[in-house]
Design a protein around this nucleic acid. Structure first.
Length: 135
DNA sequence: GCCAACGTTGGC
DNA sequence: GCCAACGTTGGC
């Protein structure tokens, strides 16, 4: 079971949208590196949902409910089905908090600002567990 | 809204 | 295959 992080612009699709719908097909990822990450997603994996506008923060958790697959409508794009798991309590974990901790400089969230989907390093998961945000 | 940092495209 | 021009993302 692997943890990933996926960015979304909340003006387009927010954690509230996901909560309301219960599940969604995550699409529109065309960047080759992000597609590689998507390809690795398997049923049962977890996905931290990150809002990349406004507060820039990790706002909730989803679960991968089916292996990722090519987008039939776009040869360069991949899809994955996600199910809403939970919305984190506020205050959210902000990008600035993650940066300030200095412990996660190798995390692509910090190191590679424009990557929209990434794997989450184990120490960060440990940190989230200590905060009680994930089990 | 601005702009830095990147990614993509297309002419050569 | 290089690289200039252009487009996009995302933090601020």
């Amino acid at each position: 079971m692997t943890y990933f992080l996926a960015k979304t612009d909340p003006d387009t699709y927010s954690i509230e949208n996901l909560k309301r719908e219960g599940a969604t097909t995550w699409n529109g990822v065309r960047n080759p590196q992000a597609v590689q990450v998507l390809k690795a997603m398997k049923k049962g994996d977890r996905v931290l949902i990150y809002h990349s506008q406004g507060q820039s923060a990790i706002v909730g958790l989803a679960r991968v409910i089916g292996n990722s697959r090519p987008d039939p409508a776009d040869a360069k794009s991949w899809l994955v089905d996600l199910k809403f798991q939970k919305k984190f309590p506020e205050p959210y974990i902000t990008l600035s908090e993650v940066k300030q901790s200095k412990k996660f400089d190798a995390f692509a969230l910090i190191k590679q600002g424009r990557l929209s989907i990434m794997e989450v390093p184990a120490p960060f998961i440990t940190w989230l567990k200590q905060k009680g945000l994930v089990i």
